[in-house]
Write a protein that binds this DNA or RNA. Structure first.
Lengths: 310, 310
DNA sequence: CGCGATTGTTCGGATAATCCGCACAGTCGT
DNA sequence: ACGACTGTGCGGATTATCCGAACAATCGCG
């Protein structure tokens, strides 16, 4: 009987391209990966990997196995969910991936509520960038993710993922108190701090500036929004900041409204095969209660329209 | 991720009723079974077994898991078959269960042909009674079985099993040479040797005698048809014997035709999910060539009518 | 009613599977 | 041509798995 653990390894090889990357992603040594794949090949009796240069790629048979295994794993996971649903107490483990500002603005409250309402439930939280986190949920490295979507930057929608809107997070221009800046145009020639190139956040931020008629002078790049705050506080830069970074505390910089009052949409995503698990449902319900009241306020009118799972 | 090996154990518990029986069937110790099931329970977080007296039965959740796992295992096996079909050379292992007279009448020729035509193929042969063998194929303990069906005693047909007719095996009355018996009626007051009570063979044999107007005096009971021959040869008993027991050698007893010239139908059965595997197809084709020419002669006219897989 | 047989479970120790670190050969980019 | 990659074997350590024996509970049979 085909060992599903090994087949998962082949899946990851197809995803990452190299054995070293798989080893890194799953916290194994490259030699283990190599050995297990060799065992898988002799288990199936068909060559699955082919060396091309110093890399490897799947043979047609390997690709067939990966695709078929996806369906099997999904069915198995669905069965697990049905099994968990027979119990009335919510228990088990949920591996949750969150980005930094959600970790500060949502998670603390959520943890208190979870401990109170579902003491049997174990929640493991890891900080991860939204872009990679969605892939990792798909690859079963996490069960649930809090992700974001910037205006006009729809995140890729995989059919296997169940997406539920969580709220709207207002985006504002953050400037040092007493800097004299009163509008976006005033910040045109200031130094900016933005997230690294390639992120949806960065792309959106640059677009905002260009629409306002200037190219931002990006002098600082970091994914750490707390660093953004520090730089803005000290007057070294201005930044576009979502409300969530304040985590309920009073902001110590001046926040100015942007034209059109833009928001980033927050949502959670889980694999469709696990979306019915009581543990997932419970965490999601608690997360919805834990979001900033201001953000939640903007939520109901979009709730039904955005809902994805059919 | 749910370990399918452990789920299989639960399947077997549902099938056999007790952990000891599972241990016996799979050649494990009872303590291993108990430990693995305990691990499975804490893996899913739901109680699957319930002690009732000194036995144990599945909880509703356990039953749900077993049923769902059946579908998953079938899909996985189908995937394995598709994978094996990508190779042109027939290889791998086929576990074949045969009953005794098939082992003598078919298997030797089949092994020669297999070694010649499919040297890469490994075939493991186990002697087993047809009644249990069909169950064991279903439970994945064997991949293919040669089974029999006596007139008016249709073997239970599972939907998951793919059944292919193999041939007809004539049944005759065997008596000692020079015993003076010329018909079934002459054997009415002789001592009989028959297979054990509960087998289809036995039930059919008794019916034949009753239709002929007498109740057989069954003085010897054994499933070993070679022992039947020995007893008939020595003149201690008469018996109803299929032609296949002679394995191509000349019979050393007198064989008399029975009224209606009855036959037992031989067929092979494999799980539907593995019926497409090249290895299974190859073994079946060789088996069809290896059956006694006399038996194969009666085959073609029933071939298409009996074919099951749609 | 009592005794033996059977069943499931637990505990220590043996066995086998798995994983790691290291060294090596081949390949790619600079 | 060199260094930084890639994948892959080998020996040893770690871990999971399995077994045998002992135990309590239950059932069947005399």
């Amino acid at each position: 009987m085909l060992d599903l653990r090994r087949v998962t390894l082949l899946r990851e090889v197809h995803r990452h391209g190299t054995l070293h990357a798989v080893a890194r992603a799953l916290s194994y040594s490259p030699s283990s990966i190599s050995q297990q794949l060799r065992l898988l090949e002799q288990e199936v009796g068909v060559p699955l990997l082919e060396r091309s240069g110093r890399r490897v790629h799947l043979t047609p048979a390997g690709l067939l196995l990966v695709e078929g295994a996806g369906a099997v794993l999904t069915d198995l996971e669905r069965l697990e969910s049905a099994l968990a649903a027979t119990e009335q107490t919510v228990s088990g483990t949920v591996r949750l991936a969150v980005f930094q500002s959600a970790a500060l603005g949502i998670v603390p409250r959520a943890l208190s509520l979870l401990a109170e309402r579902y003491p049997q439930l174990r929640v493991e939280i890891t900080q991860r960038e939204p872009e990679s986190a969605l892939d990792e949920v798909w690859a079963r490295e996490f069960d649930l993710v809090i992700a974001e979507e910037y205006p006009a930057h729809g995140a890729p929608r995989r059919r296997e993922l169940d997406r539920v809107p969580l709220g709207q997070d207002a985006l504002r221009l953050g400037v040092a108190s007493g800097s004299g800046i009163r509008s976006l145009a005033d910040a045109a020639d200031r130094a900016w701090v933005m997230e690294p190139r390639g992120t949806a956040s960065r792309h959106w931020a640059e677009q905002v500036c260009r629409v306002a008629g200037f190219e931002p002078d990006v002098r600082f790049e970091t994914a750490d929004l707390q660093a953004h705050i520090t730089l803005v506080e000290a007057g070294h830069a201005v930044a576009l900041l979502p409300d969530l970074v304040w985590g309920g505390r009073d902001p110590r910089v001046s926040l100015l409204a942007l034209p059109g009052e833009p928001h980033r949409s927050l949502f959670t995503a889980a694999r469709s095969s696990t979306a019915d698990r009581p543990a997932i449902v419970a965490v999601r319900s608690v997360l919805a209660l834990s979001i900033e009241p201001a953000a939640r306020a903007g939520y109901p009118e979009r709730a039904t329209a955005d809902k994805e799972h059919p």
